[in-house]
């Protein structure tokens, strides 16, 4: 394994009963890379992030992060070694304020207690544009702000790798560009991003490489444009030809 690989997934498999959600999935993500994942519903994209984040355990295979085998590491400890996660359906701590939500990330996974933890939580709120809502109970947020909160909490942990699960899903066209700016900012600061997204033009505009999953298997992996042009991907995922340039124009 070369030194620039931050994340190495080897032969990862997971079944729920008879449903195969990951089958012999193998790929690497380089340090500082933006790695996109697409695939039809039920392809196993979120399961893959759950496996990497330690929310569920694999049936077989291994995961290395920063050269260390983390396959048996619990979710909380994976967060501490630098893997952060945003959920597709936001999971705010509804009875805590936005600030308190983010402080959980900076004080637990981030390991920065007291003033340092406050400062880092503050910075995460500033980066995601949530500062004005810092004192709002998280249960009262609208969707966009819940998505921002997912990102802010993940940022506050001080991650090396951030797993984004449809962070742009459900947002309006106007809401997406600022989110992309934030993600570009993350990449510029050296954080590695693995990003699942159905809004392909948003994804393709950011990621260095793209992987397409179907029925738990890797269908294609490589240059984003080539992946989106490959006939298998078009057939299984899109059903029709996809005009990527038109997509990017918006």
């Amino acid at each position: 394994m070369s030194e620039s690989q931050l994340l190495s997934v080897r032969g990862l498999s997971k079944k729920f009963g008879r449903v195969v959600t990951a089958e012999d999935v193998t790929f690497d993500v380089r340090e500082g890379e933006a790695f996109g994942i697409v695939g039809p519903n039920g392809a196993g994209k979120s399961t893959l992030l759950n496996l990497i984040g330690g929310v569920i355990d694999p049936d077989a295979g291994s995961i290395e992060f920063g050269g260390r085998d983390i396959t048996r590491l619990k979710a909380a400890n994976r967060a501490k070694v630098g893997i952060a996660r945003s959920f597709q359906i936001p999971r705010p701590f509804v009875d805590m304020t936005v600030f308190e939500n983010v402080y959980v990330g900076s004080s637990f996974a981030g390991g920065t207690r007291g003033q340092h933890g406050y400062d880092r939580a503050y910075a995460a709120l500033e980066t995601t544009g949530l500062l004005g809502l810092a004192e709002t109970p998280a249960g009262q947020l609208r969707l966009l702000d819940r998505k921002r909160l997912e990102l802010a909490r993940a940022l506050a942990t001080g991650p090396r790798l951030i797993l984004l699960d449809e962070i742009a899903g459900g947002l309006t066209e106007k809401e997406i560009p600022p989110l992309i700016d934030t993600i570009r900012g993350l990449l510029a600061s050296g954080v590695t991003v693995v990003w699942i997204e159905h809004i392909v033009h948003a994804l393709v505009s950011v990621v260095d490489r793209l992987m397409c999953l179907a029925e738990g298997r890797i269908l294609a992996l490589g240059d984003p444009h080539e992946v989106m042009r490959s006939p298998e991907v078009i057939e299984v995922y899109l059903g029709t030809t996809f005009d990527i340039d038109e997509g990017r124009a918006s």
Binding site: G54, A75, A76, A79, K80, P92, V104, G105, F108
Partner: peptide
């Protein structure tokens, strides 16, 4: 803060290091 986080959403709390 960890107690409350776990109460509101244990999975999210775990992914934030609790």
């Amino acid at each position: 803060a960890g107690f409350t986080a776990v109460r509101d959403d244990a999975t999210a709390a775990a992914t934030l290091g609790v």
